[in-house]
Amino acid sequence: MLKFIAKRLLSGAITIWFIATATFFAMHAVPGDPLTQEKAMSPAVRAQLEARYGLDKPLIEQYQLFLGNMLQGDFGISFTQENRKVNDIISKHFPISAILGLAAVLIALVGGVAAGTVAAYYRNRWPDRLVMIGVIAAISVPGFVIAGLAQLIIVAMNNAAGKTLLPVAGWGSVNHIWVPALVLGLGTMAYLSRIMRASMLEVLNADFNTAAKAKGVHGLRLFWHHQLRNAVLPVVTELGPTIAGVTTGGFVVELIFAIPGLGRYFVQAVQQLDYTVIMGTTVFYGAFLVLVVVLVDISYGLIDPRIRLHGGGGR
């Protein structure tokens, strides 16, 4: 098991290096640099600034410098936000994105598993049809449209109630989380419920399900011990890519609901060519995703004994 984790982490590290390198060169391929965006400045001032940020050195040297600093966990200072360390930006705004993403994944997971199970239990009857129609709708409507609709609904609701039931946008309280998280998780929920429905159907037709019933197992015990545990396995494998999608897809929701998460800063940084912030956030996201995928693999092993005991070979 330990060997398995170590192997995964090592390949993760190589991936992060690749992401960092690709980002670095893609970014420097962009015409212009962060300083040209400012107002006209005298060559002397410009030279001074270039020296301060190390932009006067050759690209390869800058790259080496960046890699060295990255290994020490230092991403430097933002170009556009005076004297703000990239690490500070990440540590201040990432938790917000993370809470939002976590809530979205939880909603998607619980909702998807529940909807998929209901659909499988009532196969080809109206609850199944309802779930499948919902799935198709959620897959076909872009997230930003759902976000907009959600805002409209909140406004209509608040108007009808004559008071603020839920805030339309912003951040700060528990009530600010629900709607954006639901919007963010909806597409994933649809995807997961599709998978869950298929795997639950398989379990319901499986011999061991009949065998458990023949033992007299019924109701919640049957569902919890035998059906859910087996049916949820394919959903868990999808969880890694899902979390990746939700965290990087979060910035639209952050934009529309005016949530001060990291995604917004990233978009801003790209527009302003803020080298250090771009590098910092990309590498950070990359590392985060690699970690998540490893964690999901481990949790998969916890549910499925076949993988736990074989050291992760059997996927």
Binding site: T15, I19, V30, V270, T282, G286
Partner: peptide
């Protein structure tokens, strides 16, 4: 291919999109 798959898609979409200008 594995590496390219590992790139965070939307972040890089934006980055490349800007890089080509």
């Amino acid at each position: 291919v594995d590496f390219v798959v590992a790139l965070p898609f939307l972040l890089f979409m934006i980055l490349f999109r800007v890089a080509f200008g």
